[in-house]
Design a protein around this nucleic acid. Structure first.
Length: 280
DNA sequence: CGTACACCCTGGCCGC
DNA sequence: TGCGGCCAGGGTGTAC
């Protein structure tokens, strides 16, 4: 499900439920997620107060009082829902794929749901976070000052893979997933088929503002709602209405004065959408 | 080292 | 209605 804009949206939505609140109850129904939930997970969480929620790449990090950080990843199909006491939508029984239920001292219920179980929930001591295997090789945050034309030039000049595949590489820039990679390249007028190292300095420079603009606009829209993705409070994201190319195979290119038709191709076993007429 | 590919898992949809 | 095949927003282990 989630790329950076969706994870950022979920993280922001969860703050009102979790930040400065204490976990009073932890129930794990399935431990065999992508990484097994540790056996001492419940004991280490119970009674802890969430001091701060933040996002790193596509991970949500919950900094607790005490030694630990809660690490959450939503994989392809993971969701996190918060329900206040008295919310009519609040479930009384776990749904089929509700793997973890958390409660806070004010009786907020937090449900972690993930049918495909590509996501994960785990804990890491704060002083080992930087060296955690899931986090230690992550690249730069695209919505930070680290993203510069200079950085992109250096990083892309050494890569032989197509630029679309390079944008998905979380060791270079984090947070870009399969939807936004196509949208970014459309905005930058760059063909997804171009080897990353073949981009001219001008094209590499054009990529930076496209990355920022697409991700920021998607965050502003509350992320994209495909199939049944919803935010932490159940609201729908709307960036899917602004897709220029993703999932639009066969439709006319929206670019002014372009008469092209959006094509779907497969790269690294994943769908890529682009306009062959105005992306070169 | 970088790259290519299979695989992890469940569910929805489409065609027969 | 049932079934097989394909697809899905992510990430990793393995083989070259």
């Amino acid at each position: 499900m989630p790329e950076l804009p969706e994870v950022e949206t979920v993280c922001r939505g969860l703050r009102g439920f979790l930040e400065h609140h204490t976990l009073t109850d932890v129930v794990v129904r399935r431990r065999d997620l992508r990484i097994p939930i540790p056996s001492d997970f419940e004991a280490r969480l119970r009674g802890r107060t969430v001091q701060q929620l933040s996002r790193r790449a596509k991970y949500i990090l919950g900094f607790l009082d005490g030694d630990d950080v809660l690490i959450a990843h939503l994989g392809m199909s993971g969701r996190l829902f918060g329900y206040r006491a008295g919310d009519p939508k609040r479930p009384t029984e776990p749904a089929k794929h509700d793997h973890v239920w958390l409660r806070t001292e004010e009786d907020t219920l937090l449900c972690y749901t993930d049918p495909r179980r590509f996501g994960l929930l785990t804990l890491c001591p704060k002083n080992k976070l930087a060296e955690h295997p899931l986090l230690k090789d992550l690249g730069i945050e695209p919505l930070s000052a680290e993203l510069t034309p200079r950085f992109l030039s250096d990083a892309l000049s050494r890569k032989q893979v197509p630029i679309k595949v390079a944008l998905l590489d979380q060791a270079v820039i984090v947070g870009i997933g399969n939807i936004y990679a196509s949208e970014i390249l459309f905005r930058a007028h760059i063909s997804p088929l171009r080897p990353a190292s073949s981009l001219t300095p001008t094209e590499r420079a054009a990529l930076c503002p496209s990355i920022v603009a697409i991700l920021q606009r998607a965050i502003d829209a509350g992320g994209s709602t495909l199939r049944d993705y919803v935010q932490a409070d159940g609201e729908l994201g709307s960036f899917q209405d602004l897709f220029a190319v993703y999932d639009r195979e066969g439709t006319p290119c929206q670019r002014r004065a372009c008469r092209g038709t959006i094509q779907r191709i497969v790269q690294a076993a994943r769908a890529t959408y682009f306009c062959p007429s105005c992306q070169h």
